[in-house]
Design a protein around this nucleic acid. Sequence first.
DNA 1: CCCATTCTGTTGTATTTACAACTGTTATGT
DNA 2: ACATAACAGTTGTAAATACAACAGAATGGG
Lengths: 222, 222
Amino acid sequence: MGIMKKYLSLLKNSKLFQGISEDELTSMLDCLSAVTRSYHKGENIFSRGERIDSVALLLEGCIHIQKEDYWGNLSILSEISEGEIFGEVYACLGSDELLNNAVAVKPSKVLFLDVKRILTMCPSACQFHGRLIRNLLTVLAQKNKMLTQKLEHMSKRTTREKLLSYLSEQSQRAGSPVFDIPFNRQQLADFLSVDRSAMSAELCRMRDEGILSFDRNHFVLK
Amino acid sequence: MGIMKKYLSLLKNSKLFQGISEDELTSMLDCLSAVTRSYHKGENIFSRGERIDSVALLLEGCIHIQKEDYWGNLSILSEISEGEIFGEVYACLGSDELLNNAVAVKPSKVLFLDVKRILTMCPSACQFHGRLIRNLLTVLAQKNKMLTQKLEHMSKRTTREKLLSYLSEQSQRAGSPVFDIPFNRQQLADFLSVDRSAMSAELCRMRDEGILSFDRNHFVLK
DNA sequence: CCCATTCTGTTGTATTTACAACTGTTATGT
DNA sequence: ACATAACAGTTGTAAATACAACAGAATGGG
């Protein structure tokens, strides 16, 4: 478990392990039968239809939760950055099949944690076990809220409204009218489920109208 | 707490209290400072912007989680039926403002449970406390999955695809090509974020093409 | 430095949608 | 049973979108 030393501070600051001491953390990782694996860009960590019993925690890299339909239309559900977990919904539900793929968009390193051991292990022995479960609950609630916000964007009728809804949220999240988004144009279009070229045109129209300005993935709302 | 007797079997079979004995349940309700309140049709149980610290459990009636924008466009996020809980996301997150209203679409009766007591009460004394937390976790995971499925429908580009995506899921959920949906036309349109009349026309086109048949909210997929 | 690739913006057309207005049918309540 | 409201379907038009094809700028590798 020497490999984990490198990521101890990442884990300590992750939402899943928040409030758990460093000592407790290392002993927990054994207890949760933690294993790591590396993926290269484009590789699937999880695939649609699969059943899983582990929560994945991203140590390094970047993951997209996404799906492709019959005609090759890509739909991006969310982006996972370092320290965040994914797959927890299906790991908790156990018998349900995954609805989306988890794909590495950069070379990535992932830590897997057996969810059964999170939910049922030594309820009295581990002082921080209760904390771990409550952390998991909080993460699920936050993701739930994030999905609701995404639905808010997607429920807008026009591309312009979708963009404004999304960009406003990003601005609010950044606490500033100046912010970067984690997507390029094609990815943003796949995230908002609109046509890339139409979206690009709409962005330029809004820029010309003075509503916003941008350079690549750097935006300023006015 | 005599009023609760009437709903004991509903509570026992709810996802939140699944696996908890009847005796334990009645003592729990005191412990969770449970209170009930009645609402008439159209009344808000929760309102956008509000902060809450209680989970709501629907004893009787029907609730829609929905939002109205500046121009009066209604957007329905989900329907809550008897025995289901709502508000749990914001109750768990505590400091976050609600993004949606919870409105009674029928005369309804709601049970409120203090979430802090669910998460922190007597960790050793109550035998079933751990079960309650895990149940809450499962409900959150299921809702998360439901939101993902809804995003799957909404990410479709055309009204026809949205309808087929939604109706296929309903059919699958019912385990039969014959099923009822819980919405009328306007509600379904508000749920899928499309124009009602266009949707109505699309449904009729699909019927004429032999893809499906329907009568009111009763559908048959072919 | 050059080549190939990726990314972004632009334009035109066919398709699809939103919106409004209206008709007929089905519930609801008195 | 009646009047009223709620609901479902239809049509035409203006607006918005998807799609395809292309051009220039930026990026990355050899």
